[in-house]
Nucleic acid binder design. Sequence first.
DNA 1: GCTATATTTCCATAATTATGGAAATATAGT
DNA 2: ACTATATTTCCATAATTATGGAAATATAGC
Lengths: 111, 111
Amino acid sequence: MEIKHAVTLLASLAQEARLEIFRCLVQAGPDGLAAGIISQTLQIPSSTLSFHLKELSHAGLISARQESRFIYYSANYDSMNALLAYLTENCCAGESPCCPDVQCQVTPIKE
Amino acid sequence: MEIKHAVTLLASLAQEARLEIFRCLVQAGPDGLAAGIISQTLQIPSSTLSFHLKELSHAGLISARQESRFIYYSANYDSMNALLAYLTENCCAGESPCCPDVQCQVTPIKE
DNA sequence: GCTATATTTCCATAATTATGGAAATATAGT
DNA sequence: ACTATATTTCCATAATTATGGAAATATAGC
């Protein structure tokens, strides 16, 4: 994953309403939830919710599907997995030091 | 971890310069790097870097320690681990559906 | 076609975040 | 005290992001 993509995913989750929405959708499972249900559950006005859903959707973290008059939003598990993998590989903070021989590209200070 | 704290951590990583800085510090290991080296390596003007280091520091993702005239910044592995744990537990997208019986708190639509 | 419900778009406004130069501050060697 | 280097603070400015009401659009039942 490119760093810019990781930043996009992080940014879309770095907002309380959106993190709540995403968490809610993850817990709701693959079928997802209709926008109205999310609005009602999380007490978010529809226009504000729509804005946040669009953000998450643009980032690729959720998908939408129309079903009669309802639009169901569901979490894209793969996308989240990819983000976690990126963070674990590049910014990991495991017990054992990660990437032990990878060095930050430090150019020697020239006099 | 509280959701607000997760949001704070995500927000501090949701910026390309900061994600680069953090990644760099993770790779640099526990000793970290002096601010000037980071500035030079990532080509970030010192004032801008200082701003971003402060953000990461406030979020608790990095620590600073003075060493003679230099200030060394290093990644707080524990903090990152906690974030990954939070995301895995609350927003996880594993192969197997997570939290199978936890349901998003959906109040039934009343007529 | 009318009505009701679901969702989005539009819009103005507010709030937050990012940028980098210049000046200020800190630290240490001479 | 003077000098050099390291880092931060200050500041103005720009850019981005968030909010929610009102209007517009879509969908389906009657």
